[in-house]
Design a protein around this nucleic acid. Structure first.
Lengths: 158, 158
DNA sequence: TTTAATGCAAAGTGTTTGCACTATA
DNA sequence: TATAGTGCAAACACTTTGCATTAAA
C-alpha cells in the first residue's frame, strides 16, 4: 500500500469519516497519477470494482474539504490532484488556448516568488491567504510549431 | 453609448462577425459591471429584450475567442469580465473558502511582480504565456471575524 | 439578397440527491 | 449493532445544438 495513504487515513478518521475500500481506491489513483485527473478519468480507473460515480463525487468533495486533494476548475470541468503537504505548497498549471491541454509547471523558484507576492497582498488587505490557483494561458510548444502553417487565428489587434 | 464598445465592434467586424443588437446589449452589461458576472447574471440583465440564454452563451464564447472578455471558472460556474487592453494586464481574484464569495484584488504592484515571474517561466520553458488566471484562496475579512465563534472547521493537522 | 445570428425547445453533459442496502467502527 | 457510506436511478443544473425565422451587411 502506498505509504502516503496512512496520513490520509488518519486525517479522515480523526474527522469522523470511515476509511472505506472506495475511499482507498480513489485516493490511490490520485496519488499514483501525481497529476491532475478529471472526475471521469478517476471514475474510469475505479469503476471496474462497482464504484459508482456518485461515490467518486462524494469522496472527492470530502478529500477536498480536508485538504487532501485540490480542485482545479477549467473549461467547466473539474480536475483533482493531490495537495502536497510539505515542501512545494502551490502548483502552477499552464493551459494551451489552442489545443486546451493542461501542463504542470514545476518550477520551485517561481513557486517561492509567487508565495512572496501573496504574503504582500495579505499585508495590504484584510485577507487571509491559504492557497493559490495559478493557471497560465498561452500556446504550448506543439501548437507553436504548427502556428506558421495555420491561419485560423482571430484577427486580434486592438 | 459606452465608448469602450467601438473598439469591440471593430474587432468583431474585422473578424467577420455581425454587430447585432444582442451582442451590443450583452457587451454593455459586462463593460458597465466592471467585475465578473456569471452567465445567469448576464442573462437576467438582458432577457427582458427577448434575448435567449443560448445567444448569451454563443456571444460570450465569441467574445472570449476574440479576447474581449475573460472567462473565470470557479466551483463549476463560469464568470465573465472584460479584459483590459491597456494598463493592467491581469486580474487577481480571491475566493473565500467559507462563504465562497469572490473578491477582486486590484494591486498594480503585485500584478507587475506576477508578470515578471511569468516572463521567467517562459524563458525556462518552451511555452508562450499570453495571460494568467490567478485565484487566491483563503478567508475573507467577514468570515475571519466569525471564526472565533464557529467550531465547524475540519480537524486538519498533518 | 445573402447568410450569419437568433429564439426556442430539445438534447447533451456534468453533478447532486433520495433511498434501500451494505459494511465499517 | 448502529449508522456512515454506498450503488443506483432519478432529478437537477448548466451548456450546446438543430432548425425555422429574423435581420445585418
Amino acid at each position: 500500500m502506498n505509504k502516503e495513504i496512512t496520513p490520509c487515513r488518519d486525517l479522515l478518521e480523526r474527522n469522523g469519516y470511515r476509511f472505506t475500500a472506495q475511499k482507498q481506491r480513489i485516493l490511490e489513483e490520485i496519488l499514483i497519477a501525481n497529476t491532475h485527473l478529471s472526475v471521469k478519468e478517476i471514475y474510469e480507473r475505479v469503476k471496474e470494482k462497482h464504484i459508482g460515480i456518485a461515490t467518486v463525487y462524494r469522496n472527492l468533495k470530502c478529500f477536498e474539504t480536508l485538504g487532501i486533494v485540490k480542485e482545479i476548475n477549467e473549461n467547466g470541468m473539474r480536475y483533482y490532484e493531490k495537495r502536497i503537504y510539505s515542501g512545494q505548497p502551490l502548483h502552477i498549471h499552464f493551459k494551451c488556448f489552442i489545443c486546451n491541454c493542461i501542463i504542470d509547471i514545476d518550477d520551485y523558484t517561481s513557486d517561492l516568488e509567487y508565495l512572496k507576492i501573496n504574503r504582500k497582498i495579505e499585508e495590504n488587505s484584510q485577507l487571509e491567504i491559504h492557497d493559490a490557483n495559478i493557471m497560465l494561458i498561452g500556446i504550448c510548444p506543439k501548437c507553436r510549431e504548427d502556428k506558421e502553417k495555420c491561419q485560423g487565428q482571430p484577427n486580434i489587434d486592438v
